[in-house]
């Protein structure tokens, strides 16, 4: 009897306090800074192209094989506005298969992929969970806006910095052919 009364008292005390829950579709709990949502691809603003070179490391290391990627020659490398010889042509992530482990981010040495804050999977299309390059880059832009992300290794991966470094290393004398090795 005493135990029951004590239980009722505890419940009654909580009647007067604010609820700790949020009503989901209307209210969204903010995510933490390190939150790992679906992977997104990031855009190199200095060259207006993705960081991703399609090197396939993330594709190979993914424990669930949820990604596929294809590279092609970078046209911007030919005209000298980027240091990336190869660039991603197609990239697809099946978000239904993704287990949000973050291994792709760990293995990427081009700062190209990052776990974004996106975590809502529902879509109206049957293949809505298959994120293609456009969607992934769009998600990446949204992630950069909300998190203020910057590349961890800009002098290597950011086209502006890498090209400037290259120009500084070979001053005024445009070496023919041999210079491409350092790209």
């Amino acid at each position: 009897m005493i135990g029951t009364m004590r239980g009722l008292l505890t419940t009654a005390r909580w009647l007067l306090r604010r609820p700790v829950t949020a009503h989901y579709p209307e209210q969204h709990m903010p995510v933490q800074e390190r939150y790992m949502g679906f992977p997104a691809l990031l855009t190199d603003d200095t060259a207006d192209e993705p960081f991703c070179t399609g090197c396939m490391v993330c594709v190979r290391e993914c424990p669930t094989q949820c990604m596929s990627a294809q590279m092609h020659d970078n046209p911007k490398f030919a005209d000298g506005s980027s240091h990336r010889r190869k660039i991603i042509e197609e990239f697809e992530i099946n978000l239904n298969r993704c287990i949000l482990c973050g291994i792709c981010v760990d293995v990427c040495s081009f700062d190209a992929i990052e776990m974004s804050y996106e975590h809502e999977l529902a879509s109206y299309a049957r293949a809505g969970a298959r994120a293609d390059l456009t969607l992934l880059l769009e998600q990446g832009k949204r992630y950069v806006e909300t998190s203020g992300w910057t590349p961890a290794n800009p002098e290597k991966n950011s086209a502006g910095a890498a090209l400037a470094k290259k120009a500084a290393a070979a001053p005024a004398a445009p070496a023919s052919g041999g210079n491409e090795e350092s790209a």
Partner: peptide
């Protein structure tokens, strides 16, 4: 309620509430 607080902390440390890796 208490577990949720702990999971929020995990999220801030590991980036995920349950499957941390």
């Amino acid at each position: 309620r208490e577990r949720e607080r702990i999971q929020n902390l995990f999220e801030s440390v590991t980036g995920a509430r349950m499957m941390h890796n």
